[in-house]
C-alpha cells in the first residue's frame, strides 16, 4: 500500500475591489442591490466599470429591487463542502426588478426539491442579519410568497 497524506494549498488573498464593485459591496452590506446605468439606459447588475457596448467609463449607480425573476438555473442535488448551502439548492441567474441583466446567486426552495424550480419564477433575497460587504451577505434567494407576487 502506498502512503497517502492530506495536502492543502491555500492562497489567502485579500484583494482590492475598486470603486464600482466597492460601491456594490457597500450596498449589499446596507441591504440593497446597486446597478450601473449605461449610456443607452440599460441597468447592469452586478455593475461593471465600463460600458460593455462602448467601452466608456461608467459612474451612475442606481438601486434596483431585491426580488426578481430566475432566467436560468442548475440544480445541485449533492452540495459539496464549500457550497453556500448544505442542502440541495439551485445555482440561478436572477434578473432583479429594475435590472436588465441577471446575476448569479443561489436559490433555496425550502421544503421540496428541483420540482419547485422553474425558469421565470419569482424569487426574493434572504439577507443575512450580520453583513460584511460580500456577495454572501445575501444568504440566498427564496421563492417569493404568493402574497408578494400579487402585491
Amino acid at each position: 500500500m502506498a502512503l497517502t497524506a492530506p495536502y492543502v494549498l491555500e492562497y489567502t488573498y485579500r484583494r482590492s475591489v475598486g470603486p464600482v464593485v466597492g460601491q456594490f459591496l457597500t450596498g449589499l452590506r446596507d441591504q440593497k442591490f446597486l446597478g450601473m446605468k449605461t449610456s443607452s439606459g440599460r441597468i447592469l447588475v452586478p455593475p461593471p466599470e465600463n460600458d460593455p457596448e462602448t467601452g466608456e467609463t461608467l459612474s451612475e449607480m442606481v438601486a434596483v429591487g431585491d426580488a426578481g425573476v430566475v432566467t436560468t438555473w442548475s440544480w445541485v442535488s449533492a452540495p459539496r463542502k464549500n457550497h453556500p448551502l448544505q442542502k440541495p439548492f439551485a445555482w440561478a441567474l436572477v434578473k432583479l426588478d429594475g435590472a436588465d441583466t441577471a446575476m448569479l446567486h443561489v436559490v433555496d426552495v425550502g421544503e421540496g426539491g428541483m420540482e419547485k424550480m422553474s425558469t421565470g419564477m419569482r424569487v426574493r433575497a434572504r439577507w443575512k442579519a450580520e453583513r460584511i460587504g460580500h456577495v454572501t451577505d445575501v444568504a440566498c434567494f427564496e421563492p417569493e410568497s404568493p402574497q408578494a407576487v400579487t402585491r
Binding site: 488573498y13 485579500r14 484583494r15 475591489v17 460601491q23
Partner: peptide, 10 residues
C-alpha cells in the same frame, strides 16, 4: 465604504 474583500483560494 467597502474597499477590500477576502478571496482565498484553497
Amino acid at each position: 465604504p467597502i474597499k477590500r474583500m477576502l478571496a482565498p483560494v484553497r
